[in-house]
Design a protein around this nucleic acid. Structure first.
Lengths: 235, 235
DNA sequence: GACCTTATAGTCAGCATGACACTAAGATTC
DNA sequence: GAATCTTAGTGTCATGCTGACTATAAGGTC
């Protein structure tokens, strides 16, 4: 915790997204936050995070945050940004300066619905985020922007789904993330054309309407979504 | 330089791109590298960088690298990625562990053509990068990927140009970055449609062919290219 | 003045997208 | 068991963007 002059502390934090059921029954993007138990920002909500362990990769530290906060495995984990503004640690200039390397992650909806909550860990819907410690509101905002951006050109949405899923479920994920409804026919057309998904041949029954086809991911699509960096990232 | 157990050193490095004239007269992407003057990787070429100064923002440190290496001001400066693999500092496990926050920058071609070179600072064309220290080859590769990617959906190319420029000059920048020729007519059509550029009304004369119109940037386009993060970034 | 070179305009076909209509197939209701 | 409700899935059409390509404009060079 101490630091010598000119040194900075390095921390890793994680913005963890899941879809969680809302009051109306619909699902909404939510993130888990932890309550701070020390100054500065005592009692304020903050992103889960902590120092980097010796011999631990940055992404491992992020996965460890995620594990200890939510007890879940990430379906998707990617570096977001490094925040290092000299006065982001609070007004107090005597306080340790902290550079945070922030990751963002997706966890499956099923698992997340049953995730632990406690006095000091609470899930917040993204449209109900309170005032957070440090610059964490900005970080969350940026993570949301990245998620919304990335959903439109990559397959991240699948991080919220099960092994097999209907196109309506997939569409619903897009709709929640993007905050708008999508035309079912057009959505089907573009997803099928993308080749990211393959029909299983099975159908989902018991739905009070025509039984939809079940799909799964096309694993041949893992490749080159992040360019040359496919090392520390969870797929 | 020393560190206590579990601590890591934090460094900021910068991949600096410029267009520089090649043997054949054409221009090519090039980056300046510095020769290491200590172990590990003594005498190897490496990205310019160094520790973060107290009270200095990350982007300021990157700009400082750039300044001290090339004596130039960046036209564009953006965070690239934070590299923190535990054994990226060389095989020696007793060596200090270093997490590098890497920025990438563009500098103007005119200035860069006259930039200093010395025994320990040398510009390399991107297709002639030697074996570098640490994981710097990977970093350069990723920076190139980002540049090529970003050129197609943002206005970064302008970082290489003067205040006013012809569409042929702009197209040439795209061609060098993307490594392929572009149809002049189609290029003009799409650039004009994008609205990122405005005709000055002036023309460039003395060209041994029909005098081309001069353009400049449309400053109304600064906005929201990076989403919510428009703080430490140079425009 | 003929000719060379690039600037700039225009045309056309292919492809992706948004809006929207229509049929299919199950469960539910009466 | 027929009518009805709901979503699944197909098809159509207009629009806009893109690549390929043609043609004309307007300077300089010889």
């Amino acid at each position: 915790m101490n630091k010598t002059e000119g040194q900075v502390d390095l921390a890793v934090s994680t913005v963890i997204f899941a879809l969680r059921p809302q009051a109306g029954g619909s699902r909404q993007l939510a993130i888990p936050l932890v309550r701070r138990i020390r100054e500065p920002y005592l009692d304020a909500w903050a992103l889960p995070g902590g120092p980097l362990e010796r011999d631990e990769d940055l992404s491992e530290a992020a996965a460890r945050n995620l594990q200890s906060t939510t007890n879940l495995e990430p379906r998707f984990l990617e570096q977001l940004y490094a925040f290092g503004d000299p006065d982001r640690s609070g007004g107090d200039s005597s306080a340790a300066r902290v550079v945070s390397i922030v990751y963002w992650a997706l966890v499956g909806s099923e698992e997340a619905a049953a995730a632990v909550e406690s006095e000091n860990v609470h899930w917040f819907f993204v449209d109900e985020i309170p005032q957070l410690a440090f610059d964490h509101n900005l970080i969350v905002e940026y993570a949301l922007w990245r998620l919304r951006n990335k959903v439109s050109y990559s397959r991240v949405a699948h991080g919220f789904l099960n092994e097999v899923f209907t196109l309506a479920e997939l569409r619903s994920v897009y709709e929640v993330i993007l905050g708008k409804t999508l035309d079912p026919g057009n959505f089907r057309r573009s997803v099928e054309a993308s080749g990211t998904v393959v029909a299983t041949g099975e159908r989902l029954s018991g739905t009070s309407h025509r039984p939809p086809q079940l799909y799964r991911y096309n694993d041949a699509f893992e490749l080159s979504e992040n360019g040359p960096l496919t090392r520390g990232e969870k797929k």
